[in-house]
């Protein structure tokens, strides 16, 4: 009878099993909670980012891989091809350099045009107008970036809007369309709103009392700007620049439409390898991996650098 009947609870034992159970439960929860919270996004990222990247990595290691053809042996041919000389010129390196030049140029234009605007909206404009101003600045994003780029053709072409305007003021016409300048203008125009948004959110958080403190310590408004405003918003500036740089690097429409006959960029080169005449997916993957690596390094630098600064706030 004693064996089959449930044992009467022994007070001490009961409480001790209780705490063990509670501990186990807590431990379980602490294990499950992150899984539940991170699971959906994790699976999403794994399937749509990690797996495809690994696939591209594999393709990049099969020299000259083309879909529908038997894959060759693994090798680094796709990567060494990037350094290939054609007519004594490292053509693919030039393409990469040009892409970086376009991206950096556009990034700088965005920064120099965007900072004053963001500064004005965040600090000088009346508070109740801020949201309206921001929305109006972001409004161009509602149209396709392609349409906006076509609009730039209309503006920059020899008898376009720009030259008509210059004519009104008796100024000599400029021939910008189909130059690298046009590409940077077009790219900058497309990504300026993002830069303004990021800089705004950074400037808006800027503690105005710090500027008063600087002024109190003898800093003129200019000195205050360079010694306080800029360092304080540096993480925002870095984030904005990086975003513009990375997105510019992947844009091939603007260089193609505004850049003239010598406008081959990395993005277009990758596109050509995948969906163009050669269908050299292997080389395309190799180029993609280089692009991914470059962007990753840039982000890593930002995280490291941004972190150092951010922890002080």
């Amino acid at each position: 009878m004693a064996t089959s009947a449930p044992l009467p609870p022994v007070p001490g034992a009961h409480s001790s099993t209780d705490t063990v159970a509670a501990k186990l439960k807590r431990k379980l929860v602490s294990l499950i909670q992150p899984t539940v919270l991170l699971g959906p996004a994790g699976i999403w990222l794994f399937l749509l980012l990690v797996v495809p990247t690994l696939m591209i990595l594999e393709l990049s290691l099969i020299p000259g891989f083309r879909p529908g053809e038997p894959a060759g042996a693994y090798g680094l041919g796709n990567y060494t091809k990037i350094f290939e000389l054609i007519d004594g010129q490292p053509i693919y390196l030039w393409v990469i350099a040009r892409s970086v030049l376009f991206s950096v140029g556009s990034m700088l234009i965005c920064l120099f045009l965007g900072f004053p605007v963001a500064y004005w909206i965040a600090i000088m404009a009346p508070k109740r107008w801020q949201n309206l101003l921001l929305v109006s600045f972001v409004l161009p994003l509602w149209t396709s970036s392609l349409l906006r780029s076509y609009a730039w053709i209309t503006i920059l072409r020899p008898t376009g809007v720009l030259n008509s305007l210059l004519g009104v003021f008796n100024l000599p016409p400029v021939d910008i369309l189909n130059t690298q300048t046009a590409v940077m203008i077009g790219l900058a125009y497309n990504y300026l709103p993002y830069m303004v948004l990021i800089l705004y959110s950074s400037l808006e958080k800027l503690d105005q009392r710090l500027l008063e403190a600087a002024s109190d310590l003898g800093a003129t408004p200019q000195q205050g700007f360079w010694k306080v405003t800029v360092p304080q918003t540096l993480p925002g500036i870095a984030a904005g620049c990086l975003l513009v740089f990375i997105t510019n690097l992947g844009d091939f429409v603007v260089p193609e439409l505004l850049g003239g006959a010598s406008s081959m960029t990395m993005a277009r080169l990758v596109y050509n390898q995948f969906l163009g005449a050669t269908r050299n997916w292997g080389f395309g993957s190799g180029l993609s991996m280089v692009l991914i690596l470059g962007v990753s390094i840039a982000i890593a630098l930002l995280l490291k650098y941004g972190d150092q600064k951010a922890e002080d706030f």
Binding site: G64, E84, I86, D87, Q89, I91, Y92, W94, V95, R98, A261, S262, S263, M264, L269, N272, Q273, G276, A277, T278, R279, N280
Partner: peptide, 15 residues
């Protein structure tokens, strides 16, 4: 020959 075409093309459009 597609590779050859592509290489010359890249050269042409980036030179």
């Amino acid at each position: 020959a597609t590779d050859l075409y592509d290489r010359y093309w890249t050269q042409l459009t980036s030179g």
